Simulated assay, not measured.
Amino acid sequence: MKVKKNIFVYTLLGCLLATTQLFAQEQYQDYFKVKAIPDTTQIRIGEPIRLEITAKVMIYALKGANLKVVFPNLPDSLNHIEITDRTQLDTSGSNEQQKLFKQIITLTSFDSGRWEMPPMKFEVFSVTDGSYDSVFTEPFFIDVNTVPVDTTKAFKPIKALRSVGWNILDYWPYLLACLALSAAIVLYFVFWHKKRKPAVVAPPARPAKAPYQLAMEQLELLEKEKPWNSDVKLYYTQLTDILRQYFEQQFHIAALEQTSAELMQNIKPVTVLNQQRDKLQSILTLADLAKFAKLQPSPQEHEDCLRKAIAVVEWTKPSAVAAEQPASNSTN
């Protein structure tokens, strides 16, 4: 009897939990809606389709929530469908009650048939608790038709080539260009060729800056200019390029040619750099989301990434003892 009682209690708790999750998911979908609406689904080969994708967040129903929406990153070609153009995100339809994101994508196809545009995945991040969820659009089909040809009519013969009479006026731009070039060459040799200027001695090249000094100057310039106020993607590109160039010059790691995952794998043998692994992982992850997933970090996150980058460079700079050791060995 005790076992049956426990089974009944666990079954009841499971049903309540499933019902609660289903209700929360349905309620969340009412507050966040995505759509993909094409202007037509019937085209001939090569004709464009204007696809409008929108994401609507009902702000009035999510008071206090801090959500970030990431639009689907579609490839240039999928399932016989080609993407020829895509606009920037438009938020002009937002107001105090709702936040509206809109993007126009131009599609076409060069293969006749019926092709499916699969569901598009939207990512929703919660800055408050770090959770995220996915929402999908409804799929739709595109019918691509060929140009009709009347096979009952006979083929027309190929016409012979026709010759066109020569006329000097047809070539006057080229003759004028040749005349101007000839005049320029004559004037050069008559007037300017004899007046040769003395050779200019180039100033001696200044010694190159140390990788640590160069990286710190670039990071201080970023902190002064605050480029994230105008272009978030450019800011994170500059920030990660400064770190990658520093790693490449200081530790001889091909950081500029590696992905974030490859870079994190290749810093393991460098002990002093691997000690800052958590800070570097945080910087690269947020930068990749901002550059490739169109994430919009907060101003505090911008400054936090910059402070972490400065800390990584400061921690890994060459010490005075290490710099003096080769000189003492050469003296001995």
Results as ranks from 00 to 15, higher is better:
Y246R: 04
A215C: 04
P204E: 12
W192V: 07
K233S: 15
T237K: 04
E248G: 08
K194D: 02
R206K: 13
L219C: 05
D241V: 03
V190Q: 13
A254D: 14
Q238K: 14
A210Y: 01
V232Y: 06
I267L: 10
N229K: 13
P211Y: 04
A184L: 14
S260C: 11
K197T: 13
K224W: 11
L214P: 03
P207I: 11
A199Q: 12
A215T: 07
F189W: 10
S230M: 09
K233E: 15
A183L: 15
V201I: 15
A183E: 07
E248M: 11
V232F: 07
K195F: 00
M264F: 08
Q250G: 02
P203H: 01
T237W: 05
H252S: 11
P204D: 12
P211A: 10
I253R: 03
E217D: 15
K209I: 09
T237G: 09
L222Y: 06
E225L: 07
L243P: 07
M264I: 12
E223Q: 13
A261K: 09
L221S: 11
Q250I: 01
K194C: 08
A210I: 03
N266F: 05
P204L: 13
F247G: 00
E248A: 10
P204F: 10
D241A: 06
A208N: 06
L239E: 02
V201A: 10
Y235D: 02
